[in-house]
């Protein structure tokens, strides 16, 4: 298993891993922030579109 490092240069592998893991972590954190359940910053029952929370009454039916 250790011979892997005789094939691939550790410096390049570590750099690539750092970039990949950082990008993945950033993506996941922002995905979670975009949800209601796992948003740890916004106000607890905030979020959602304005329309989805408030419904106007139906206009009277035309005769």
């Amino acid at each position: 298993m250790h011979r892997f490092w005789m094939l691939f240069d550790p410096r390049q592998v570590l750099t690539g891993l750092a970039v990949a893991v950082f990008t993945l972590a950033l993506t996941i954190h922002f995905i979670l922030l975009s949800t209601d359940r796992y948003n740890w910053l916004g106000d607890p029952n905030g979020g959602g579109l304005a329309v989805s929370t408030h419904q106007e009454a139906m206009p009277p039916a035309r005769s």
Partner: peptide
């Protein structure tokens, strides 16, 4: 190929793990 010898690869691998 990287420039590591077998022993260097083994040493790095244990630290990596």
């Amino acid at each position: 190929m990287s420039s590591l010898s077998e022993s260097e690869a083994k040493e790095f691998h244990s630290a990596y793990v």
